[in-house]
Amino acid sequence: TPAPPPGSGEHPIQFNYSLWFSKRTPGKQTTSYDQTLRFVGSFASVEQFWSYYTHLSRPSELSGHSDYHIFKEGIRPMWEDDANKAGGKWIIRLKKGIASRCWENLVLAMLGEQFMVGGEVCGAVVSIRYQEDILSLWNRTANDHVTTSRIRDTLKRILNLPPNTIMEYKCHTDSLK
């Protein structure tokens, strides 16, 4: 389902994005990641984004093992997608209680084109887990150090994280091994 064109008076965004949700059911895993992934919708304007966002539970209110994914339209939130194959992600582990605020700041920076890395950004994920929550920002080219450094610096600036927060970069090919 492609995003509808921005309506009259709406504010278009640089790239259209799609919102996805996934939840792992407790117990034995009989379904693949692909099967747990639910497409929520695509948007092409700031107002369309908020129309989805305001109807969703905040990340901190989700139970169990849940993820929101916001990726550029046409990129599936998985390593195997062509846009992600040579890419990687910055991973930020958060103490419980701050995920909703940090996720919103991350998403707004991405939709507002604050990263200044051209078309390098693929998408963002918030992962709700039992002990901690995890933010990740995916980009196309893992070995482009200028881009990954710029993304890291922007993440630090926009997230306003506690000083002891650890940021880690992972290539998707390492994750596959």
Binding site: G9, H11, I13, E47, W50, S51, L108, G112, E113, Q114
Partner: peptide, 21 residues
């Protein structure tokens, strides 16, 4: 072409727009 850039404050303001359903 031109890049469409928005800051956080502006995006939050749009949240209250009557266009946001």
């Amino acid at each position: 072409g031109t890049r469409i850039v928005y800051d956080r404050a502006f995006l939050l303001q749009c949240r209250n727009s009557p266009l946001t359903k």
